[in-house]
Design a protein around this nucleic acid. Structure first.
Lengths: 229, 229
DNA sequence: ACAAAAGTGTTTGTTGTACACCCATGC
DNA sequence: GCATGGGTGTACAACAAACACTTTTGT
């Protein structure tokens, strides 16, 4: 008990809602708790913010430590601070949401594979703390942002077919989209660059692959451009 | 030094960016610091989150204590947690933004009037900590939300004229809007209720006064309706 | 009667929506 | 040659944008 203060201080943690799209399902990663409280229950990856790291660094670090995932899209979601959200002590949690490409979904080898798992958002187990509520908030935010920020690409491999992109939108927004209109709209942004490649190993006509031109988007965005789909 | 922990804990504060519209300017409230660090400089109202109150309660409480303002629109903005944002110790700040009607702008009598003041957003003094950055974030958020959430009404008295509402949009978005198109659009939402009153004491044709039908909006919003202006 | 702001419609261009068939490829 | 998804255009409706004059009221 080396650290003393004149007034009580809360603990500050980060919790990460990591989304991916896998086999036509939107999924998120949970880990099984190995310690009290809520031992054995599923929870979001996360942990304490250290005194010498920024909150975002803490989120990246915990993600890497607990799931092996690194270098992904990570954005602050909301800060949850109800007095009794942790039964032990006062804990304020800064939640982040993260997006992982379907290619990098593999939980790294240095992780206890039994304890980290992808769950479809509609088939979540019982969750520790207020994590159910955090996930609902993250899901709503993802749905909202998808339509007016180019974040869908973060969930795809660097080279992707238009049908993959459309399917991703349909899965997350939970509604069918018109193929021709979707293509028209996304092409009209001018943000997709044609690679001269096509899909490999499919048993039908191979689709053209595109990449998202992030540099072009960043320049446009700086000048007031608004992505919308 | 009665409170001891095994690991160092950060302090958690709230900071509030309180907006109002006054004399055709978007303004926000600052208080002059009476203590170190940054003594004498201007800063956002705010303070420490107590161990037994939620973060939002802390924001309301500090606002009332420091500025006399209460019962206003208050929404979490972002959590700022760079390691060195406070020169004394590690402080994580959960920022809120608040909207005050132009009628309630008066800084309450129980406040040291010399120390709290409204500043136009484009004429801010030098600010303590990273408060300049927090304000920029809040301003961008306000501009963004104004177009797709009915928050403009929070900055007006309960009964208002359409020209007041338009002027508010023009001031915050910083661009001229077409009067006829604006009126058409806002009337078509069906969310304004006609009071049978008109402006008093104006030296020209008196405008009709309307109220915003929040109940109706809440019901529509629950069923997927999206406000847009 | 004049100053000041309130109030009101129409036209034109742009964007969204609905919709069905041929094409390329692997087996 | 057939099954599978890839790729394409047009017509119609809805919405956004541009634009100017009359009305009401107080002084």
């Amino acid at each position: 008990m080396k650290y003393s203060y004149q007034y009580p201080h809360p603990s500050v943690t980060v919790d990460c809602v990591v989304f991916t799209v896998q086999n036509n399902f939107l999924k998120l990663m949970l880990i099984q708790r190995g310690a009290e409280p809520f031992i054995g229950e599923w929870a979001l990856p996360g942990g304490f913010v250290r005194i010498d790291e920024s909150i975002e660094s803490a989120a990246s670090r915990e993600l890497k430590e607990e799931t092996g995932i690194e270098n992904i899209y990570l954005e602050q979601l909301y800060t949850f601070g109800k007095v009794d959200r942790d039964p032990r002590e006062r804990v304020i949690s800064v939640a982040y949401y993260a997006l992982v490409s379907s290619e990098e979904q593999i939980i790294a080898a240095d992780t206890d594979a039994a304890s980290a798992k992808w769950f479809p958002v509609d088939e979540l187990p019982r969750l520790a703390f207020d994590h159910k509520y955090i996930i609902e908030t993250a899901y709503r935010r993802l749905q909202g942002k998808l339509s007016y920020q180019p974040i869908g690409f973060e969930l795809l491999p660097p080279k992707f077919a238009l049908s993959q992109l459309q399917s991703l939108y349909e899965i997350i927004l939970n509604k069918k989209l018109d193929k021709r209109n979707f293509r028209k709209k996304i092409q009209k942004t001018g943000l997709l660059a044609d690679t001269n490649e096509t899909q490999k190993g499919v048993s039908h006509r191979a689709a053209k692959l595109y990449t998202f031109n992030k540099e072009k988007y960043d320049i446009l965005a700086k000048n007031g451009y608004y992505f919308e789909i």
